[in-house]
Design a protein around this nucleic acid. Structure first.
Lengths: 131, 131, 131, 131
DNA sequence: GTGGTCTAGACCACT
DNA sequence: GTGGTCTAGACCACC
């Protein structure tokens, strides 16, 4: 992998969830591309010093989300998943996420201008669909 | 309260967490202001039909976060919480939230333009500090 | 539960998959309704004589599919899930299933008339959306 | 072969299983007839770019099911397989398949009318026994 | 050697 | 007492 997964063991976020999020983000940022091979369950388990079942759970979750595809006997690969949800559902999901984000921002005492700048800058580090 | 808390019992999010998030969001949107009185634990427990312990846990969490303050014998009130973190720490926290948001957006197949528009629109419904 | 889950231990289908399919079918046939409570993980594990983790895996899968909703500390309930896939995706998925079904039918040497009758009869035992 | 086998490598379905299903479906749709010659294991392995062992496993499975027959030194041919099961057993097997199909349909939120139309249309693309 | 399933048993978060 | 997470270790299907 072109980068390292960072686990925070003293976190309320479960280990498998941290792995899921970091792989999803790497894909969204274009650090991982469709067809790239992920480390095997056992390799990653050794590297992160967690139980192989925990890695397997993360990979299962990612597969269910269409982010990766596991092939028995061959390994695990980044998929070129297309989201099949309706347009309304997608907006609904994202709006909720954005509201969480903004709630946090206001409570942190940041200004609207500052937040918009941070959002735009960060968006530039992601890999957007062309369509 | 000027608005109703909406609980989704069919949700992986814990009940107390939903309450915390909705109070925080109401404050961030200016629906609740510093000094406003919240319902008592028992009142809210009756209204939402949940265990009083669950409400108490939500209030404890909100107090720990500096969003509300309980005054013995008087009730619970919205605090005018000032965030005591350093500027760097605040940016770090928000950036992580924004990254989660953008990761979701890319996986939903939305365009950068669409997401920026949605973010800006939603930000307009929040109450920002003047500073 | 108004009916019993039947496990075939000598089957290529995994145990958790058999549970998933049978719960899905019970919901589709109207034997289980939104809001109904399922047995606890431990209860069902005892009843079917399998490991609680196996039941938990089945429940997790069903939750991900939106068929049930688990509430920590409260139990597991049938959800009133709405499918948010696009119309094309839904037709695509079902057509593939139908093709599998028909392939099987032809290889069994059944006549078209016979199969259509069986299909229509069986459909009558399901609970269809009104819309 | 009058048509091409399409492998989906990003799929939980095993490669050999996809081959088995597609040959069975081609026979059921009349694209392959009794006596037609199939490619050799090596030819098909080269064409699909998979391990010859995988093709061999698919052929073994198809032969076991009576769909094809290998003749030493001559090649592999589509058999005119007669299903040796009792009428009851055949109905039982098909009913289970139909139930899976209908369970999926209901969960996709499709109407009974829609599903019946799709089933009838698809059935028209299959080659049924005259008997 | 790869991922998938299952068991056994521990601990935690939530109601 | 409920479901959720994690560990440990076994066996199987697939390539």
């Amino acid at each position: 992998m072109p980068w390292k997964i960072q686990l925070v063991t003293n976190s309320p976020a479960p280990i498998f969830g941290q792995i899921v999020q970091q792989v999803r983000q790497a894909v969204a940022q274009g650090l991982l591309h469709a067809g790239d091979r992920l480390p095997t369950v056992r390799e990653l388990a050794d590297e992160l010093v967690v139980n192989p079942n925990t890695i397997a759970k993360a990979y299962t979750e990612l597969e269910r989300a269409g982010v990766i595809a596991a092939r028995r006997g061959a390994g695990t690969f980044i998929a070129d998943g297309q989201c099949a949800l309706t347009a309304e559902e997608r907006e609904r999901i994202l709006t909720r996420k954005i509201e969480e984000c903004l709630t946090e921002a206001v409570h942190l005492g940041l200004t609207q201008k500052h937040v918009l700048r941070l959002f735009t800058e960060t968006a530039g580090r992601f890999r957007w669909p062309m369509k």
